[in-house]
Amino acid sequence: MVRPFIDKIVTANDLREGDVVYLTEGNNWSRHLAEAEVLQDEATAKARLAVGSSDVLNIIGAYLADVTPAETGPEPRHFREEFRRTGPSNYFHGKQESAENV
């Protein structure tokens, strides 16, 4: 049985700052998951990952992460991606330091 495709986004870390970034439709890197381009089939996901990975002067370690679409934008399906979106949970000193960042 073919498994249904799970929506994806392309994510990476910024080469200079290390921050978690997401590939947007306009081929920019955003620090906000809400601005990420949601990829709805495998071929597009592969192609967009290739685009993201090729931007070696700006990012490091691009990969595809599973998301669930929501009204406010894509939501992470795995807790690892939730922490990457917001920052460490032991105390709030990552992106979540400012509400505008998450």
């Binding site: 290390g18 978690v20 990552g94 992106k95």
Partner: peptide, 8 residues
């Protein structure tokens, strides 16, 4: 120098 989840 490593790369971690949120930063180097």
């Amino acid at each position: 120098l490593y790369l971690q989840l949120h930063a180097y």
